[in-house]
């Protein structure tokens, strides 16, 4: 029973961070800031939900296969998410997307895309 409560709290924490990320995606002013907010969902939002699911799989359902699969899912998201973020940000900058409000410091534009 205690394990169940801890797992539920972890999932709730994950949901709160996912909500923060969603608000950020909807309200941030430019592409890159929106991507920054979305990282919140893929890290602590996902980790909270996955840790909760792991606890439930181990102690409530006692199912080793499910526990291992949950751990592999979390690991794969953590490994692949930065690659995607990096490629999308670089591609957007190369395609000429700039924030409406000019960035205070823009070393990348100064050095490589003059």
């Amino acid at each position: 029973m205690t394990v169940r409560i801890i797992a539920d709290v972890l999932i709730a924490i994950g949901a709160i961070f996912a909500l923060a990320g969603t608000i950020g995606i909807l309200k941030m002013p430019d592409t890159y800031s929106r991507m920054q907010a979305s990282t919140c969902i893929a890290t602590l939002g996902m980790l909270g939900a996955m840790l909760g699911a792991l606890l439930i799989a181990i102690f409530v359902k006692a199912d080793a296969g499910a526990a291992v699969k949950v751990a592999v899912i979390a690991l794969l998201i953590l490994v692949t998410n930065p690659l995607g973020s990096h490629a999308i940000a670089k591609g957007a900058y190369k395609a000429g997307i700039r924030p409406e409000k000019k960035m205070e410091v823009d070393d990348l534009g100064r050095d490589l895309y003059e």
């Binding site: 709160i16 961070f17 923060a20 990320g21 608000i23 950020g24 309200k27 941030m28 002013p29 430019d30 890159y32 800031s33 920054q36 907010a37 990282t39 919140c40 924030p99 960035m103 205070e104 410091v105 823009d106 070393d107 990348l108 534009g109």
Partner: peptide, 17 residues
């Protein structure tokens, strides 16, 4: 980041360093 998002996304100053 969550604080910034719940605070209305005004408290930001983006740039590339």
């Amino acid at each position: 980041m969550a604080k910034r998002c719940f605070g209305g996304c005004k408290n930001i100053n983006p740039g590339i360093v």
